[in-house]
Amino acid sequence: MAFDRKYVTYAVGGIAVAAIPLSFFGPEGLRLVVIGLLMLAGPGTALVMLLRFGPPDGPETRSMLPLAVSIAVASSLALSTVVATAMVFSRTWSPPVAVCLLSLVTLGLLALDAKRTRGSLAGAR
């Protein structure tokens, strides 16, 4: 499980970092894949990893997977929607800036998760 978490963290972090330059330039196909993934699941996955749905290794943890995936996708899309809509209404439309914002939120949540996980491990010792 920790193994999985580590690689999910790397993947999400990598996408968030890569999306920042790609929102300004790069091949269209690559930009669509990376930025599309970030908008689809980036901030939400980082959020879900930060959250604890119950006691760690509890029997309900595995049955939480569909809910966690749902929240990861829906919250990423919802955040992207809110950011884009706020930019439109405030007449500050700038898609690259919006993507940078989503990336920063993702990286911030991943950092918080790392801090929380370290704290939990230290407490467990």
Partner: peptide, 9 residues
Amino acid sequence: LLGLLSGAT
């Protein structure tokens, strides 16, 4: 949301 995807990519 779609406009953001199109504009950013």
